[in-house]
Amino acid sequence: MKKILLIVLSIIILGCKNDKKEDGKAEILNIVTTTSMITDLVKNIGGDMVNVQGLMGAGVDPHLYKASEGDVSKLFNADVIFYNGLHLEGKLVEVFEKMEGKKETVALGEFLPKDQLIGSEYFASNYDPHVWFNIEFFKKFAIEVTRVLSEKDPKNASQYAANEKAYLIKLDVLQAEVKNTIAKLPEEKRILVTAHDAFNYFGKAYGFNVVGLQGLSTATEAGVQDVQKLSNFIIDNKVKAIFIESSVPRRTIEALQAAVLSKNHEVTIGGSLYSDALGDAGSIEGTYLGMFRYNVSVIVNALK
């Protein structure tokens, strides 16, 4: 990590990239994003007026992600860097801090109203960073991305605004669909047990009791006592299914299932949910809208 920081500082000292082509015409904006959710969002707002490079692909855990030298090069050549913030990208925070004042870094989570965030005495930021599972918060992300892009590239501001309007309509449709789908699941069955606490905002929005085997960050592993405690909870509440996550090793949930089965209670693995990353690029689940619909369908069908 120290080596990477030295590279960052050295590159910054050398100066900033020229934003003009040799013929005097402005280049399209170079944008670097961290999580795949933010990458998808910026592509929707920026369209073909921006070049977006996401650091984290499908199945990548942002809590544990470390910047490579290639990442540092992308960050240096960016006009704007969008990231989640709220300490989600814990191991990248120091890199971003070194770039402040030299590069435009935008922590989207920092623009959310703090009184609406879920706090935690156990997490470094004191807030749950998995804010994209509240669609209203993701709308605020879209508005902020539009503002930044418009300020950076005012000649295309009207097109950014049009793209934002179209995307916000899609998010409104998603909200209505999710609400209707979840309404089919009785309230007493809305208990969501996953590998780590990534779904608290989802639970708050749709009336789920969300329980994660690990805490808000995957940096700490679940212990034997955690597994036993949660297995008892599953039995006491007659939970039908538990869920693995695409960005967390499945062994954590398999260990939980084994603990439940050892106590003569059956619980199935209801499927794999996308939590800290979208699905494969080019797939339906590789978009924020597709990921959300997929997750809701898997959860409702498994818990019915």
Rank of each mutant, 00 (worst) to 15 (best):
I269D: 12
R190F: 07
W132P: 07
I182R: 09
I12Q: 02
V8P: 02
A107E: 14
E89D: 15
M291F: 07
P129S: 08
G290Y: 03
V145P: 09
I118M: 15
N77R: 01
H63V: 00
S10W: 08
L230Q: 09
T33Y: 05
F138I: 03
I284V: 15
K139F: 07
G286D: 07
N156F: 11
F96M: 04
V248E: 02
T105K: 03
Y294F: 12
I242E: 00
N163Q: 00
K155P: 00
H130L: 08
V300P: 13
Y201T: 07
N237Y: 08
C16G: 02
E110M: 13
T35E: 09
I169Y: 13
K189M: 10
S125T: 01
L273S: 09
M99D: 07
Y167P: 04
L278S: 03
S262N: 14
V50W: 10
E144D: 05
F202M: 08
D280M: 07
V227Y: 12
V298P: 10
I118D: 05
Q214W: 04
Q214F: 10
Y122E: 15
S120F: 01
V148R: 08
F243H: 13
K21Y: 10
V211K: 15
T181A: 14
L92V: 04
L213M: 12
S36C: 13
M37Y: 14
K103E: 08
E144I: 04
E266L: 14
G270E: 12
G207K: 08
Y206F: 13
Y167G: 05
L171P: 00
S10D: 10
I284W: 03
Q159R: 12
Q225Y: 04
N163F: 01
F199D: 03
Q228H: 05
K238M: 02
H196P: 00
L303D: 11
I182P: 15
L149H: 15
V8N: 05
I244D: 02
A277D: 06
I143A: 10
H87A: 06
I11H: 06
P113Y: 01
I182S: 13
V173Q: 13
I234Q: 06
V239P: 12
Y294V: 09
Y274E: 00
L9R: 11
G24M: 08
F96S: 00
K103L: 07
E188I: 02
V95Q: 06
T146Y: 03
G15Q: 04
L213Y: 13
E104H: 02
K43V: 04
I135F: 05
D40M: 08
F202A: 10
N163D: 06
N301R: 12
K17G: 06
E136A: 15
E27C: 09
V72E: 01
G24V: 11
K304W: 01
N134R: 14
L5I: 12
V267P: 08
I81P: 11
